[in-house]
Design a protein around this nucleic acid. Structure first.
Lengths: 152, 152
DNA sequence: CAGCATCCACCCCGATACTG
DNA sequence: CAGTATCGGGGTGGATGCTG
């Protein structure tokens, strides 16, 4: 599957995004000219996803909703440590971005269900890969950290 | 972006979602409750990548280093808006995690180059998919936000 | 050139209390 | 049940100045 191959990286770069291709060995730079820059637009894309999933709870919520429509209280229960405030706030954010839908049923006691939109679902699959990466490499990372901390 | 979703995670495990990938963790914890729960371990993986790339500059730095070994000053120039403090701090973090390597050349004036490790490169390709997702959907997201803001 | 140190503004988020 | 409102601590990160 996706190896950390740089040719592929360049290939998957979105139109408009200039990911500097790691040109072959060659001499690095002969000219003092600047190397690869991010366009402001590229940086904006990065910040946009970071705003979406970079916070503490969004990914957990989206991941939980992958199990299907879920009630507010079930979300609170499924996500250890989340406060009511953050659950409500993050849900509203994600709803605003169109990643999930809120459905309130006119009953007593009230029932509200949240479910992923197509957009939210497409983000989920991408984000899960990050989680998989973390699962695959977290041991290596911990070792790196300990080695680093030891030698300083 | 690759539209052919590979159904790998897209299967959206209904209950006890798990990132199969390596299948290292087969312990599907079924807790009393109607919906999927995150194990503490799963949540930890999420928080781990978030600690790595969830901050304001890591992704930009990693992306810039995709162009090959880069000097400190070139990084500062390539990443608009970053402060010296944050550049130094984030570089040290990433180095600690083993995502990049710092190489100091004993010259005057001093020259220091940063380059991605294999680990950093593998993360890059995953992260770029997120950026690609953002580029593909940011227009849709903006529309969603405006619609939401209008009706409230 | 490539940092480090300090100060401090902001704002994220948890805790708590209250409501429809 | 499903929120809202308010307070406050702590951490992130920008600005500035100094060093080897």
């Amino acid at each position: 599957m996706r190896s950390g191959n740089e040719g592929e990286v360049a290939a998957m770069a979105p139109k408009g995004m200039r990911v500097a291709r790691t040109g072959v060995r060659a001499n690095v730079r002969v000219t003092p000219g600047p190397c690869a820059h991010w366009s402001d637009q590229d940086a904006d894309f990065i910040r946009e996803i970071l705003d979406l999933v970079g916070d503490k709870w969004s990914v957990l919520i989206i991941g939980t909703l992958a199990g299907g429509p879920t009630r507010y209280s079930d979300l609170a229960e499924a996500i250890p440590g989340i406060s009511q405030r953050m659950l409500t706030l993050t849900l509203k954010q994600l709803q605003r971005d169109g990643l999930l839908i809120r459905t309130a049923y006119p009953e007593v006691p009230p029932r509200v269900e949240y479910s992923l939109t197509g957009l939210g679902n497409s983000l989920l699959s991408t984000v899960l890969e990050l989680a998989a990466w973390s699962a695959d490499h977290h041991a290596e990372i911990r070792r790196n950290q300990q080695t680093f901390d030891a030698g300083s």
